[in-house]
Design a protein around this nucleic acid. Structure first.
Lengths: 345, 345
DNA sequence: TTGTACGCGTTATCAT
DNA sequence: ATGATAACGCGTACAA
């Protein structure tokens, strides 16, 4: 008759390994975390037991006992948007070879979801966090500040981050694209956007600023939808723009997918690019340089933001907080055929 | 002088909340997990303490004490490939509203990484797992079988899965695309591929089968690279194909990105599509229907695979193992302008 | 180099 | 409806 015993996990534990190897549990623990601290003989015997038993350390017990985790939580609005795909590549490249692991959370552009995720993540006592943007809800801010682990905000730029920040100004970037179109002699420049998240709004502000500066601003030129962005949205957005302003002669888009969709739609309508119509995208995704014609776009450094942010959070976790907590990754206008109108500067 | 006390996490615990609310810890625990079991008065008092203290339950302690987690681990080769992006959307849609959470692991197409990730994940004692493909290493299989939690293999189709499976035959799908090109009268049909993972190889086998059946097989027509797939790879792959077989008259590609890249490259070379050259892609991504010309492609049900797999694993976790453990999501040839040659069947 | 004792924060079990 | 007690599996501190 056994004692009052609870439901065990059923999986082998450190003690099981220890018994099989005829050592104490702590020795097995050491053999795993710090092999040099255990004699080669024992090390080998222990490894054999581990293999034969099929032991896998219980992360929860480790975390509880050590009061630490190696989890870096990353909260982004979408895993499937190609913009964040590049950020994620950067994250993985930075995490590679470190003892840390990443845990992604997808807010699907919802502030409520963001708060829920934040609570979920904080429950894991993460070593550090990456969060997207600088527009957290007051509750989210409260949670982050109270928790105290290193936090890096990414993608946007503000001057007073929660903790650290890696981003760029979407407003300035969009303004630069629009000014480029203006400099090429385009006058009726539309703005096409989907998704309408915070950063999209910032881009619209930048577009507006540039248009007003040139005395070209007309609110009818801004065509948006709250639908998630896809290439195929270029068609309806273009159609709407043409119906509002038939003599539109260029578009600045919120991202390259919309730009590519617009390009296809204009080709179908037999509108010649760049002569009758100029296009400037946003992000400079891989296909911009190979499309026909090539797409002018505003390059953003998504991979670098992900990589840099992880490097910074790891540095902070390790006690080497970067002396410069705000990093501006900037942007770059890349001019290609879609705006290379003959006879213009 | 305090007792031999260890490093605490410093964060508020259940006991802190309990003391503040003047109840026992277990009551707080119940108030959180099963509010109906606690009187309304206490419930409210406890909630106040939680809010004022800023308590967030420690996941590790929960997992340890209950010997359960609500984590469903998902191991995929890439988070950033748009194919998996759709799978991920399906996963999130299926997980929404359930008490489960997902944890993604990225193998970057490396079997070694897959094993490491598997161990990492199993350390969390996940409630269930999704793994990509049916070509796990022997060690990985061993780990999965020994662990015993519900497992769903996704993306490929075999008849004897580890546990459950949702996928389709890449070989059959590619063969169908190639047969379509053959039926349109194309003869010298190239195959362009990047990444070269297991599923790519299966597609090549399907292509080969179709070509042999028609007596058109020629190994020089298969042009591949191990680089990760991107639209811009269409250019060098096309170039290589033309240099090997100048009179090539169609391409079946391993995916739509390569197909789009090839489309752009052919436009640059002033090769008319579909008359001089046919193109059939793979996956039927969103842009296939809007590109100019529209791209014929083989539609695959990526979203459905992700969604279905999660539904199945949750069912199994809940004890309602699906009676049919293998689901074939199939594929569909979608014919568009890029293969609509005049005067052919 | 190896072992003993104990606590990490929570939940299961049993009792009231 | 509420509480006391003992685990869960591991790592820390200290001792040998």
């Amino acid at each position: 008759m056994k004692k009052k015993s609870r439901k065990r996990s059923g999986k082998p534990t450190l003690v099981d390994v220890a018994e099989a190897a005829n050592v104490s549990a702590i020795t097995v623990s050491r053999a795993l975390r710090n092999p040099e601290a255990v004699s080669p003989t024992l090390r080998e015997r222990i490894q054999k037991s581990i293999d034969s038993i099929g032991y896998v350390p219980n992360t929860a017990a480790q975390a509880l006992a050590s009061a630490r985790t190696n989890v870096i939580g990353i909260i982004i609005p979408s895993l499937t948007n190609s913009v964040f795909a590049d950020v994620i590549r950067g994250v993985y490249d930075a995490i590679e070879g470190t003892p840390f692991q990443v845990q992604f959370g997808n807010t699907n552009y919802s502030p409520i979801k963001e708060e829920e995720l934040l609570k979920l993540f904080l429950g894991q006592r993460p070593a550090g966090l990456l969060v997207t943007g600088a527009a957290q809800s007051p509750e989210a801010l409260q949670l982050l500040r109270a928790n105290g682990c290193p936090v890096v905000q990414i993608m946007e730029k503000i001057d007073d981050p929660i903790d650290m920040l890696v981003g760029f100004s979407h407003e300035d970037a969009a303004a630069e694209g629009t000014r480029h179109l203006i400099s090429k002699g385009y006058k009726k420049i539309g703005f096409l956007a989907a998704q309408m998240d915070v950063r999209t709004q910032q881009r619209i502000v930048g577009y507006e600023r540039a248009m007003r500066e040139a005395g070209l601003y007309d609110p009818r030129l801004i065509v948006t939808t709250t639908k998630p962005s896809r290439v195929s949205l270029g068609t309806p957005l273009c159609a709407e723009l043409f119906s509002r302003v038939p003599d539109v002669d260029a578009v600045q888009t919120n991202n390259d997918d919309i730009a590519l969709g617009a390009l296809f739609e204009l080709q179908r309508r037999r509108v010649s690019i760049p002569d009758e119509m100029g296009i400037c995208g946003f992000n400079d995704l891989n296909y911009c340089q190979v499309s026909h014609p090539g797409l002018t776009s505003i390059r953003t450094y998504r991979y670098e933001m992900g990589k840099r942010a992880v490097e910074m959070v790891i540095a902070a976790i390790s006690g080497n907080r970067p002396e410069q907590p705000v990093v501006d990754t900037g942007f770059l206008l890349v001019e290609r055929e879609s705006t290379q109108r003959a006879g213009q500067s």
